[in-house]
């Protein structure tokens, strides 16, 4: 059986290999679309809009490559669209990072930079989230589990107050809320056929791959499955930022030579 094709918008602003690897790992094939006029966009049945780097640069590229209208048309067809990182940010009206560039404005909110007075900025590392609307019934969206951690790397975010959350939810959006130190921000957004995450599911281990898989299978709402290996009797700290303590493994050739000599 031929593998199902997933289309990815590529405005050539950064590395999409990891995303491609993740989708291929899940058993799909990837086709990149580099211009909105590409007929492949009409044929796409699952479309991903990943973004890295600067908001203004990304959105300008997105506009220059004629993606605005075809993507809006795509959204109207009801076929699934998944934005990642700056891809999510593109759905908002704009960003403090590049005030002269307008986003798509699906959500009327300006992105702003995290306040670095109580934490490191950029927000780099593994953080958790909650989907209040579903979590209270033991359910969640696209396998985003409240006891899992997801990889974030960004300086700008949809930083929101409780009243803004309520307002955006009243417009039909389902929201995953993240918290970085004292600031609440939108970790993921979902409405009808649109889904987007601020974090990188393709860099978030198996927990992240599950989210991509749920999107590709369109398993939107499901019960939370608890990761039994996270159970513990020990009282676990609350970190000041919400981020986990990162453990990095390093492969160093100099080390290798050292040990092979002994």
């Amino acid at each position: 059986m031929a593998k199902e094709i997933v289309h990815i918008i590529d405005v050539e602003s950064g590395n999409l290999r990891s995303l491609q690897n993740a989708i291929e790992y899940l058993g799909y094939e990837v086709t990149f679309i580099k211009d909105g006029s590409d007929p492949a966009l009409q044929e796409a049945s699952k479309l991903i809009l990943p973004g890295v780097g600067n908001f203004g640069h990304f959105v300008k590229q997105f506009r220059q490559r004629n993606f605005v209208e075809p993507v809006q048309e795509y959204i109207k067809t009801g076929k699934p669209l998944f934005g990642i990182c700056v891809g999510l940010q593109t759905f908002f009206s704009g960003s403090e990072e590049s005030k002269d560039v307008d986003g798509l404005g699906l959500i009327d909110l300006q992105l702003s930079k995290f306040d670095d007075s109580d934490k490191s900025v950029p927000h780099i590392g593994w953080n958790s989230l909650s989907v209040p609307k579903y979590n209270k019934d033991g359910k969640t969206l696209y396998s985003m589990y409240p006891d899992s951690y997801y990889y974030f790397v960004h300086s700008y975010a949809a930083v929101v107050s409780d009243s803004q959350i309520a307002k955006i939810e009243s417009q039909g959006w389902d929201l995953a809320i993240g918290q970085y130190a004292s600031e609440k921000f939108l970790a993921a957004i979902s409405k009808d056929n649109i889904f987007a995450t601020q974090f990188h599911p393709e860099k978030s281990g198996l927990a992240g791959l599950k989210i991509i898989q749920s999107f590709l299978k369109q398993d939107k709402v499901g019960f939370i499955k608890t990761n039994s290996s996270t159970k513990t009797d020990v009282k676990i700290e609350t970190t000041p930022t919400g981020l986990t303590r990162r453990v990095i493994a390093c492969l160093d050739r100099n080390q290798k030579e050292e040990t092979s000599e002994t």
Binding site: G205, L206, A207, Q213, E237, T238
Partner: peptide
């Protein structure tokens, strides 16, 4: 007592 990420064990 430290907060660390423990990943899921399967997809």
């Amino acid at each position: 007592g430290l907060l660390v990420r423990i990943d899921d064990t399967q997809l």
